[in-house]
Computed example of a mutant assay.
Amino acid sequence: MSGAGGDPMDGFDATVHAPNRLRTCALLEAAGEAEFAVVQAELGVSASVLSKHVTVLMEAGYVEQRKAVRDTRQRVWLRLTPAGHEAYQGHLASLRAIVGS
């Protein structure tokens, strides 16, 4: 995150910035952990679209998944990693600095 007088772009994270990835991070930040299908429904996107965005976030080390069987079906749960939390918070701070108070 940028300090006083720092460059507002310091915390800007292009990986987080894409709208569906930003919304995914916001949802996971609030929920702690959420089932893939819940995130998909909240974002109103197809499973394949969400899967692509989650893959990008996972490759960056921002999201991790946990697979578990529930009601005889395998479910995928998503959560932000500590690095993902830090990147998301830094990106929000950068956006706030860019648009001003």
Rank of each mutant, 00 (worst) to 15 (best):
Y88L: 05
A97P: 03
A4K: 07
R96F: 12
A30L: 04
P8Q: 07
A93T: 06
A37R: 03
G100I: 08
L50V: 03
E33N: 02
V49Q: 14
G6E: 15
Q40T: 00
D13K: 02
V49N: 13
G32H: 02
E33I: 02
A37C: 04
A26H: 10
S46E: 12
V49K: 13
V16C: 09
Q40M: 15
K67N: 06
H17V: 07
T72N: 15
L95H: 02
R79A: 02
L22T: 00
D7W: 08
Q40D: 05
M9R: 12
S101Y: 09
M58N: 02
R21T: 07
L50P: 09
A14K: 05
V56E: 13
G44N: 12
V45S: 14
R79I: 01
F12W: 13
C25D: 08
T24L: 07
Q74K: 12
V16I: 13
D71Y: 04
S46H: 08
L27N: 03
E64V: 06
M58D: 08
G3D: 12
E64A: 02
W77N: 00
L22A: 04
E29I: 03
L80C: 10
Q74E: 15
K67H: 10
A14F: 03
R79E: 00
V56I: 14
R23H: 09
K52I: 05
A68G: 03
S101M: 09
Y88Q: 03
K67T: 01
G3E: 15
D13V: 01
V56K: 11
V99N: 08
R21S: 10
Q65S: 05
A37G: 03
E33Q: 08
V63R: 00
V76N: 02
V56C: 06
G61N: 08
S94V: 02
V38E: 11
I98C: 07
L28W: 11
R21W: 11
L28A: 04
A83W: 09
A60R: 06
V63C: 04
K67Y: 04
R79Y: 00
G6M: 11
G100S: 14
S101F: 10
G61Q: 11
G90R: 10
V39E: 06
S51Y: 06
G44K: 06
E29H: 14
E42V: 05
E29W: 15
H85E: 15
G3F: 12
E64T: 04
L80N: 07
V39D: 03
D10G: 04
Y62Q: 07
G44V: 01
D13G: 08
H17R: 05
G90Y: 15
G84I: 05
N20D: 12
E42Q: 14
V54F: 07
V38I: 08
Q89V: 13
V38M: 11
A4Q: 08
S46I: 09
R73D: 09
L27Q: 03
A68E: 11
A47Y: 11
L27T: 02
M1F: 12
G61I: 13
A87C: 07
T55G: 10
P82C: 14
E86A: 14
S51E: 09
V54W: 07
A68T: 02
S101D: 12
M1V: 03
A47R: 09
E33D: 08
S94G: 12
R21G: 06
V39T: 01
P19K: 14
